[in-house]
Design a protein around this nucleic acid. Sequence first.
DNA 1: ATTGTAGTTTATAATGATTCTAAAAAAGTG
DNA 2: CACTTTTTTAGAATCATTATAAACTACAAT
Lengths: 132, 132
Amino acid sequence: MKYIEKLRNSGLRPTKQRLQICEILFNTDKTFHFTINELEQKIKKQANNKISLATVYNTVHAFEKKGYLKQIPINSSETYFDTNVTDHHHFYDLKEEKLIDLDNSDVGPINILKKINGKKIKSVEVLVKLED
Amino acid sequence: MKYIEKLRNSGLRPTKQRLQICEILFNTDKTFHFTINELEQKIKKQANNKISLATVYNTVHAFEKKGYLKQIPINSSETYFDTNVTDHHHFYDLKEEKLIDLDNSDVGPINILKKINGKKIKSVEVLVKLED
DNA sequence: ATTGTAGTTTATAATGATTCTAAAAAAGTG
DNA sequence: CACTTTTTTAGAATCATTATAAACTACAAT
């Protein structure tokens, strides 16, 4: 299993649950956006077993901490995660309530001129809201 | 009272509660960022009365609908609102959990190259996360 | 292998922000 | 004032997320 190494290297034990979640999240070239709830549904469908909701939360947060996932800042009752952790941005279609990837090359370079003492920039995220 | 007109023109009855919230939110040149909870605290402090939490929610949502407030897309357990409804951006200090305004001039011009058929851009919001 | 221990999973309870409800109060109208 | 509509309110309900604590598992040391 190709994810065993990845997990071990991160100090995470390669458990059955984590490996299954890895398969769903990372075993594709496509990046995708998901909520915890959507992920849980996908787990149920894919393998006729279920992983405890708490474990799904734990795992997603562990992966986020290790940098394998990131949250997408958006006003929604549920938190959205993204398997694409490279610097990139999003369209948010207000009508469809769907996220669409924006490559870095789709957005001109962003230069933040203002500085705050003692703080450094961790990330720059652009959300482009779309309407009809 | 200068807000009576404003409320009437929006089809909102100028009640005691709404006027008091207007005073707090709009009676200053400074724009500010707040959560419902912070606003409730401010109400309690400012006038030794209290407005029901449900009313604070109702009022903020009514004002948002009328375009007097906007939500700031951010990953936080509480929803942040902004009295500055013009297009502008934010720093988010992860440690202090505080928002800081970024004028448009603090951010280079942003040019979105990708187009989505039948959709037009409603807003472009940049969130710059800060760490120590 | 067997044991020990630290990490993990799990069901369930607890939390906390937000929304709903339905009755009382206030605003607007004639 | 009498009447209708809107608003306020306290408390209940909801829903995503986090905490808890017991059972389980991975893994290393004996």
